[in-house]
C-alpha cells in the first residue's frame, strides 16, 4: 500500500463535496419548508443535540484512521454515565462523579488498547467483547432501572449557557479544538496518520506502534467519559440503555464526513460536518413532522448518498 501523503488542506479540498453538498441541500430544503428551522433557538437546539455524538465521533475518527474501530463506545458512555450518577447520588460530589466517569472511560479505553495492541485481537472483536462487558455491567449495576436523584448542579452542565452559547456547545468546541490540535499539531497526530497508512515506517523510526495504539483507544475511552457527563446532565439521570448503538451513529457520521475506512485518511472537520448533517436531518424531519418510518429510510439514504457523491468525486 502506498501512503497518501496529503496535507490537511489539500485533503479538505478533495473531500468537501460529499458531506457539504448533503448539508447544503438539507439546510436549503428545511430552511424553505419549515419556518421554525432558521431561528436562533432551533440552531442552538441542533448544535446542543449534536454535542454528545460529536464527543464520540472525534476520537472515533482517530481510531478509524489507525484502521481500527471502537464498537464499545456507546456502552462505555452508558456505563460511565451510570458510574457518575451512582457516585454523585452516594457522595453528593459532582467532582467525584466526574472522576468516576472518566475512570470507567479510561479503564475501558486502556483495556481495548491492550487487547488490540498487545494481544493482537482485531479491534472489531475486541470492542464487540468489551461492548458486551460494559452493557452487562450497566444492567447489573442498575437492575435495568434509571439512576435518579441527581442535584441540579449536574443538569446545569447541559442546560446552562456561557455568553449566550449553550454550555454543551462550548464543551464540544473545546473538545474539537483539543482533538484538532492533537491530530494536526503534535507528534502524536503525525503518528496517528502513520498508523493507518504507513505503519512500517513508524516501526522503522523506532516508535512503539503498540504504545501509540493504546493511547488512541485511551483517548477514545476518556472522551466517552466526557460524553457521559453531557448525557447524564441532559437526562438528569442515567439509564442502562441511554447510549446503546451510538457508536454506529458516530461511525456513520464519520463516513458521511469523508474519512476513509481503508487508507487511514481522516478528516476531522468532515466529521464535524457529518455530525451536524445527521443532527440537521433529524431536527428538520421532526419539524416537518415526517413520519418516523420515512425518517428511518431517509437516514439510511443520506448515508449512502453522501458516500456515493464522494465516490463520484474519487472517480474523476
Amino acid at each position: 500500500m502506498s501512503a497518501h501523503k496529503l496535507t490537511p488542506a489539500s485533503m479538505s479540498l478533495a473531500r468537501v463535496p460529499g458531506v457539504a453538498i448533503v448539508l447544503a441541500i438539507l439546510c436549503a430544503t428545511f430552511g424553505v419548508m419549515s419556518p421554525g428551522f432558521v431561528t436562533p433557538a432551533n440552531i442552538s437546539n441542533i448544535l446542543s443535540q449534536s454535542t454528545i455524538l460529536l464527543l464520540l465521533a472525534l476520537p472515533m475518527t482517530l481510531i478509524i484512521m489507525t484502521e481500527g474501530l471502537d464498537l464499545s463506545m456507546g456502552a462505555v458512555l452508558t456505563l460511565a454515565s451510570i458510574a457518575l450518577a451512582i457516585t454523585v447520588v452516594a457522595t453528593g460530589s459532582a467532582t467525584l462523579g466526574f472522576l468516576a466517569a472518566l475512570t470507567v472511560g479510561f479503564c475501558f479505553g486502556l483495556g481495548n488498547g491492550v487487547l488490540i495492541a498487545a494481544l493482537d485481537i482485531p479491534p472489531f472483536i475486541t470492542t464487540l467483547g468489551t461492548l458486551g462487558i460494559a452493557q452487562g455491567l450497566s444492567l447489573l449495576a442498575t437492575d435495568g432501572q434509571s439512576v435518579v436523584g441527581l442535584p441540579r448542579s449536574i443538569e446545569v452542565i447541559y442546560s446552562g449557557s456561557a455568553a449566550g452559547i449553550p454550555l454543551p456547545v462550548v464543551i464540544a468546541a473545546l473538545a474539537y479544538a483539543l482533538t484538532y490540535a492533537l491530530l494536526y499539531h503534535t507528534r502524536f497526530g503525525t503518528y496517528v496518520f502513520a498508523l493507518g497508512g504507513n505503519r512500517e515506517a513508524l516501526k522503522l523510526a523506532g516508535i512503539s506502534v503498540r504504545g501509540m495504539l493504546i493511547r488512541v483507544y485511551v483517548f477514545g475511552g476518556l472522551m466517552a467519559g466526557f460524553a457521559a457527563l453531557l448525557m447524564t446532565a441532559r437526562l438528569n439521570s442515567a439509564h442502562p440503555t441511554a447510549g446503546i448503538g451510538m457508536e454506529f451513529d458516530a461511525i456513520a457520521a464519520i463516513a458521511v464526513g469523508g474519512t476513509s475506512f481503508e487508507r487511514g485518511n481522516g478528516w476531522l472537520f468532515g466529521t464535524l460536518l457529518g455530525v451536524i448533517a445527521v443532527g440537521v436531518l433529524r431536527n428538520g424531519l421532526n419539524l416537518l413532522a415526517v413520519p418516523s418510518s420515512a425518517q428511518v429510510t431517509c437516514i439510511g439514504a443520506i448515508v449512502i448518498i453522501a458516500l456515493f457523491i464522494d465516490g463520484l468525486r474519487g472517480d474523476r
Binding site: A255, V296, T297, I299, G300, A301, V303, I304
Partner: peptide, 8 residues
C-alpha cells in the same frame, strides 16, 4: 449500515 436503516 445505510441499507439497514433503509430496510428498517
Amino acid at each position: 449500515y445505510g441499507m439497514m436503516w433503509m430496510l428498517t
